[in-house]
Computed example of a mutant assay.
Amino acid sequence: MEVLTVFILALLWDIALGEPPVRLHPVVWFGKLADFLDSRWRRRSHLLDFLAGTLTALLALAFALVLSLLPLYLPFPLNYILAVYFLKSSFAVRSLYEHVSRTATDDIEAKREAVSMIVSRDTSELDEGHLNSAAVESLAENLNDSVVAPLFYFLLFGLPGALVYRAINTLDAMLGYRNERYEFFGKFAARLDDVLNFIPARITVLLYLPSGGKKVLNHWKLAKFKINSDKPVAAMSAVLGVWLEKLGVYRFPGREPETEDIKRALWVYLVVVGEWLAMVFIPLVMGVCPCLNR
């Protein structure tokens, strides 16, 4: 019941208040740690860069683990408050919805600016169709990274699972680039993130089945571009019936996405999130969740 209580309070926090203040957000702390170590490591050789990047990822992982264990050493009610705070910080239902909803505008420049806030690609030269696509892609991909995956690891390993996953996912977003600076320094974080997301990404696809049926499975077969990230994007493309394309990386078939399709995607997002929260809630209530034995 303690784990169930923490989960319910964290979910209510997310719905009512959204994200914690930036300065106090554990995800920001993970990012600052990674940035500190990254900025002070002068690139040397492929092997040394890989070892330095691996150490950076392990330090972030250890930091997340220490944070997640702090509630065990605090008296009531501080232990509950901190546990709820850390669990809430590992997932983001409301803020993801809010960020993507800002892209659902017919003002092309406002849309371009809003999309630039949620994707890493250069939006300055994208046409309206690709801007709409980028917004929907970000929603689909982050549904896995920011909702399904952290709660999946919470079910398995409790608060340590959720926070450690979030730390690795944050480092992948910061360091996991295929360029000269990060090809080897960010490789360990990127590959570990791939491993951790393998099952959650496929769970996310299955959650789309009630909305898209066989079309989701057909698009899933086309998702051979990435290990994980293109799978939820393919499923969203199937449900909406629109093409979703990251230039030079992947393209899933359909008609051109419009602003209205961003709004439709947000409704699909709420349905899928509702399904997943129910799937998390049920084993916690029944007392059959692995994390209850930890």
Rank of each mutant, 00 (worst) to 15 (best):
L209K: 12
V249C: 04
S237F: 09
E275Y: 15
L17T: 07
L192S: 10
R181T: 07
A223M: 01
H25M: 08
G31Y: 10
W243G: 04
R43V: 07
L87V: 01
S120Q: 11
L207A: 12
F63T: 00
F152D: 01
P210G: 06
F152K: 04
A134T: 03
L65A: 15
F7K: 03
R121T: 07
A265H: 03
D106Q: 10
L4P: 05
E180W: 11
E98S: 10
A234V: 03
T259V: 15
F30V: 05
L48R: 14
A134R: 02
V6D: 00
T123L: 14
A10S: 14
C289P: 03
L175T: 01
M279A: 14
D127C: 08
L244Q: 03
V3L: 13
L51A: 13
G186A: 07
D14W: 08
V148N: 07
E2C: 06
V216Q: 07
D49C: 09
G176N: 02
I81S: 08
I8H: 06
L24T: 14
T204G: 00
A234T: 07
S124T: 14
I15L: 13
S146Q: 05
A135R: 11
C289D: 08
T56S: 09
I199K: 03
I262D: 07
F7G: 04
D38P: 08
F7D: 00
G241C: 10
S146F: 02
F36H: 15
V27K: 04
N132P: 05
V249Y: 06
P200L: 02
L163H: 09
A134N: 02
